[in-house]
Nucleic acid binder design. Structure first.
Length: 103
DNA sequence: CCGATGACGCGCC
DNA sequence: GGGCGCGCCATCG
């Protein structure tokens, strides 16, 4: 644990992700911007490298533009989870105007 | 310290 | 619409 700051970048990412309400989604770049940075790629890595996060709905984090993006347990599973929460998915895409949640 | 990686984003062909 | 390339920045080796 090389915790340089009080809260690592990762922890902030997870914290924000945990705030996303059910039936809503947020984006990698959105999270990065909320943290006042442009490390959207690092955001993805943070989620991937932390499958430990129980209670962190990482599946609610999607790409900008509505594409699902990746998921440690499979993109398929990600789509299922989102749909089960009420998020409609058309041809692998989400209507961002309707489901995007902003911090 | 430096080079490579990556669940990305966006412009361009 | 699909595919390619470059840029972004925290982590890893």
């Amino acid at each position: 644990m090389i915790n340089i700051n009080k809260k690592s970048f990762q922890e902030r990412v997870l914290e924000l992700t945990a705030r996303v309400p059910e039936g809503r989604v947020t984006t990698y770049s959105g999270i990065a911007r909320a943290l006042n940075t442009r490390a959207y790629r690092a955001v993805g890595q943070a989620l991937k490298r932390n499958p430990h996060a129980p209670g962190i709905p990482c599946h609610r984090v999607v790409k900008s533009g509505g594409l699902l993006g990746g998921y440690s347990r499979g993109a398929r599973k990600k789509a299922e989870l989102l749909e089960s929460e009420g998020v409609e998915i058309r041809n692998g895409r989400i209507d961002m105007e309707r489901y995007l949640w902003k911090p």
